[in-house]
């Protein structure tokens, strides 16, 4: 339908205008955050939000980055997220392959154990994991957090990868088996390349999830210099209680990596979300 035809009906036009208004309202929080971050707090306080800003500057960003600690919070997030992501994808592809491609007693039960775990309210795990991390000497280290993320995300990743691996035609694997290929080579050289689309979708989604985690960061880490951006922002908020321009600038810095991932890998992100829910 061309735009011309579309707007011929008055009802449709009215609906469209409504949609435009709602969409713009939806984007208001982004807009106001951006506007705020370039202004000075005194300027907003004295002259109001809707005044024309006297000056625009990057001062709030500089403040959040240097004194607010974003310069180490942001790298910390990557140090935590990337190993967790790689490990969880690696381990879940192993267990997904076993669950998707072999018949053995306990297959269903293990599968449901994984699926059930993805729905768990994490709070149930909070105290024992805190204790376990302490006992392993991993409290207040990156590895404590990485270990937990790896383990917890296994459930969802296995669920998703297993369903995907089941759609790979069995003849391909059987042919390799006939040629004397062992199971680990089949997994690595045949199954993994065929699973790449699902892995890409999953990696994108998991990156945002692990990157955006807040609860586990505040439970398993104490030192300020180890905190990822989410926990760091909460500290920043406490530090600049009244200086909202710095807090908002910090929040915007924290979103840059996920926004980049979203812009470039949007298709995978959406695929990941829907794979999990509709399969």
């Amino acid at each position: 339908m061309s735009a011309r035809q579309f707007f011929r009906s008055p009802w449709r036009t009215a609906g469209y205008i409504l949609l435009v208004i709602v969409t713009l309202l939806w984007l208001v929080p982004f807009g106001q955050a951006l506007l705020t971050s370039f202004r000075s707090y005194d300027d907003i306080m004295i002259r109001g939000f809707f005044s024309l800003p006297k000056t625009l500057s990057l001062n709030s960003y500089r403040e959040a980055w240097e004194r607010g600690g974003m310069r180490y919070y942001l790298p910390n997030s990557f140090i935590i997220t990337i190993p967790s992501l790689i490990l969880t994808l690696f381990f879940s592809s192993l267990s997904a392959y076993a669950l998707a491609r072999f018949r053995f007693p306990g297959n269903r039960a293990i599968f449901f154990l994984y699926v059930g775990g993805t729905m768990l309210p994490f709070q149930v795990l909070m105290l024992p994991v805190f204790r376990l991390t302490n006992a392993l000497g991993l409290y207040d280290t990156y590895w404590g957090l990485i270990a937990f993320h790896t383990a917890f995300q296994l459930g969802f990743c296995t669920f998703l990868l297993r369903n995907y691996m089941r759609t790979v035609p069995g003849e391909i694997l059987e042919a390799a088996r006939m040629d004397g290929c062992n199971e680990f080579r089949i997994w690595w050289q045949i199954m993994m390349p065929l699973t790449l689309p699902a892995l890409a979708a999953l990696a994108t989604l998991e990156f945002t999830w692990i990157f955006n985690d807040y609860l586990w960061a505040i439970i398993l880490l104490r030192s300020d210099h180890l905190k990822p951006v989410t926990a760091g922002l909460a500290t920043l908020q406490g530090q600049y209680v009244t200086d909202w321009t710095v807090i908002v600038a910090g929040a915007l810095i924290a979103t840059i990596p996920t926004v980049i991932v979203f812009i470039f890998l949007q298709r995978y992100f959406i695929e990941g979300l829907t794979l999990g829910a509709t399969k």
Partner: peptide, 26 residues
């Protein structure tokens, strides 16, 4: 016949230690 267990053993142990065990321990 052993291979599914070999594939599963490491991930499942990790999962049990950090997720299943803690749930019961709570």
């Amino acid at each position: 016949r052993l291979s599914p267990y070999l594939f599963l053993i490491v991930p499942l142990i990790i999962y049990c230690i950090w997720v299943v065990g803690p749930m019961l321990y709570t």
